[in-house]
Each structure stands twice: as structure tokens, then as C-alpha cells.
């Protein structure tokens, strides 16, 4: 448990946090903007990884492979959107159905194998854990571009309609907004980002794995919520939209730094998911418990005879 080991591991954790931050931005789009708990992401993250690795090993340049991974995610999100809007399946269930279907599809993409390697020595990858400073720079640029695009899009007339759909569907319909279309668009874009992140993470770690997306939604939520709590603590009412999006990524980075510390403390890797679930539960509970503390029956009943 030497401190030096922890510090040596930090840049890697930051790089991973930034890459997962892209996926968290996708989760933000559905969970926060659309108010839709989308579980497709566990599947679409792995889809992104599978598509990217298969294409790169097949000779496609990595950036183009990532673009195609993005569109694979768009298709996955579209499927969930159709299940929800056209067939009336509740949001969580629609996401789970697509997610489980993607498990088979992802296996097929990787020709039946559960994982597939992509060697940085053989292929020209966008990011890799062998060159962490380079990875950090590339992922920072990617994050900045994505935040810029999201800021722009959500500020357009269509983006405003999307935000209104998440905020008040009844009002949106009365204002002539096709809320079903808006939901499908948001789900498609969100899963596109998630798959893009999956493709980058697969390159970073040097392989794609059928299980690489397991629990991705929880990590995404962790990033969104940790970022929100910390952002509000620092900036309070001055939080604007760009800061809000930036703190989603900050949340992902903090999450991976915490994971790094926990691993350094020799926690068995098997317990990581349990640990993650507990962190997310705590951060989800804090705002609720704070509200309860402010106005609770116990407080009101104080001094009762």
C-alpha cells in the first residue's frame, strides 16, 4: 500500500473517468433531460465496443470505426424508443428488452466470441492505456466537443422541445410538440454517445468484452449524481448548463479516482460493483434525506405529550 503506487495509477484513473464521462453525458440526456431511466445503455455500451473492435481489426481506421459505433448505438436507442412510444412498453422495461436483445447481437457482431482483442502495436488506435497522457488529451478534446454540441443542440428550437418533453409532457403536447418523436430522438442520441464511449473504452483497454457494459447505467448515474452534488456545492445557483454538463464528466472522473483508491486499499475487485451500488445509493439518498430532515414528522412531533 505505498502512496507512490496510488499516484502512479491516478493518470490511468483520470483517463478512464474521462472516457466514461462521455457515456455519462449520454445518460444525462435521457435521465436528466428526458426524465427517462434508460437501461439500454448496458447493452449499447458493449455494442459500441464490439463494433469498434471488429471494424478496426478488419482494417477500418479507428475514427471511422468510432463513427459507425456511434450509429450502432443510435439504432439501439431507436429500438428502445419504438418499443416505448409505438408499443407502449414502460420505459424501464423497454430498455431492458433492448439490452437483453443486444447481448445476442453483440455476440454475433464478435462472431460468437465473448471478447475480442485489438492490439495497439498492430493497429492505429485513438486512445490506449499504453499512452495515458495522449489518451487524456484526446478524451478531453472529445468531451469538450461533445459538451459544445450538446449545449448547442439543446439550445435550438428542437432541443428546447426535447427539454420541454422531459419537463412537462402535457404542456408539450398542447404546444404542438410530437413528444414521441422527441423521446425517440433523445434515446437515439443518448445511446449513440454511450456506444461511442464503449468504442473508446474498448480501444483504451485493448479489447471488447460482451460484459463490458454490465452496470454501465449505474456508473453513468453515479457520474451524473456525484457531478451534480459537487457542482451545486461549489457553484450553487451560478450553475449554468455548460457547467452542469462539465460536472457530469467531473463526476465520472471522481468516480474512477475513488475506485482507484479503493483498489489501492486492496479491496477485492469482485466487490467493486457492490461498492458502486452503495455509492450511488448514498448519493441518490442524500438530497432526499436532506429534504426529510428539513421537514419531518418526527421534528413536527417534537415535544408532543
Amino acid at each position: 500500500m505505498e502512496l507512490a503506487t496510488l499516484f502512479n495509477a491516478m493518470p490511468g484513473n483520470i483517463a478512464q473517468g474521462l472516457l466514461w464521462g462521455i457515456m455519462a453525458l449520454g445518460v444525462y440526456l435521457t435521465f436528466k433531460v428526458l426524465n427517462f431511466a434508460d437501461l439500454t445503455v448496458d447493452g449499447s455500451f458493449a455494442t459500441g465496443g464490439a463494433v469498434a473492435v471488429v471494424l478496426i481489426t478488419g482494417g477500418v481506421p479507428a475514427p471511422i470505426a468510432l463513427m459507425i459505433a456511434f450509429f450502432a448505438g443510435v439504432v439501439a436507442g431507436f429500438a428502445t424508443g419504438i418499443l416505448h412510444t409505438v408499443f407502449g412498453i414502460p420505459d424501464i422495461l423497454a430498455g431492458i428488452l433492448t439490452q437483453i436483445a443486444l447481448y445476442s447481437i453483440n455476440l454475433n457482431i464478435m462472431s460468437g466470441s465473448a471478447n475480442m482483442a485489438v492490439n495497439v502495436l498492430k493497429y492505429n488506435l485513438v486512445v490506449t492505456l499504453r499512452e495515458i497522457p495522449h489518451t487524456i488529451i484526446i478524451s478531453l478534446i472529445s468531451v469538450a466537443v461533445i459538451i459544445g454540441l450538446m449545449y448547442w443542440y439543446l439550445g435550438t428550437a428542437q432541443g428546447s422541445a426535447l427539454r420541454a418533453t422531459g419537463n412537462n409532457p402535457a404542456m408539450s403536447r398542447a404546444q404542438g410538440i410530437n413528444i414521441n418523436l422527441m423521446k425517440v430522438i433523445a434515446l437515439a442520441l443518448s445511446n449513440g454517445l454511450v456506444a461511442l464511449a464503449g468504442g473508446m473504452v474498448a480501444q483504451y483497454q485493448g479489447f471488447s468484452d460482451i460484459n463490458m457494459g454490465r452496470g454501465a447505467i449505474v456508473i453513468g448515474l453515479a457520474a451524473v449524481i456525484i457531478g451534480e452534488v459537487i457542482g451545486n456545492a461549489i457553484f450553487g445557483k451560478k450553475m449554468n448548463f455548460v457547467l452542469r454538463l462539465s460536472f457530469v464528466v467531473v463526476g465520472a472522473v471522481i468516480y474512477y479516482i475513488v475506485i482507484g483508491v479503493v483498489l489501492w486499499l486492496n479491496m477485492p475487485t469482485n466487490d467493486l460493483k457492490l461498492f458502486t451500488a452503495i455509492i450511488v445509493a448514498i448519493f441518490l439518498a442524500i438530497p432526499y434525506l436532506k429534504g426529510q430532515a428539513r421537514s419531518s414528522f418526527r421534528k413536527a412531533g417534537k415535544g408532543a405529550r
Binding site: Y153, T156, Q158, G176, I177
Partner: peptide
């Protein structure tokens, strides 16, 4: 939002 009722909501501001 209300001002665009019945109009196309594109990628303009």
C-alpha cells in the same frame, strides 16, 4: 416554445 406552436422546430436557436 409556445411561439413555435404549429411550426417546424428545427435547428435554429
Amino acid at each position: 416554445l409556445a411561439d413555435r406552436r404549429g411550426k417546424k422546430r428545427g435547428l435554429g436557436w
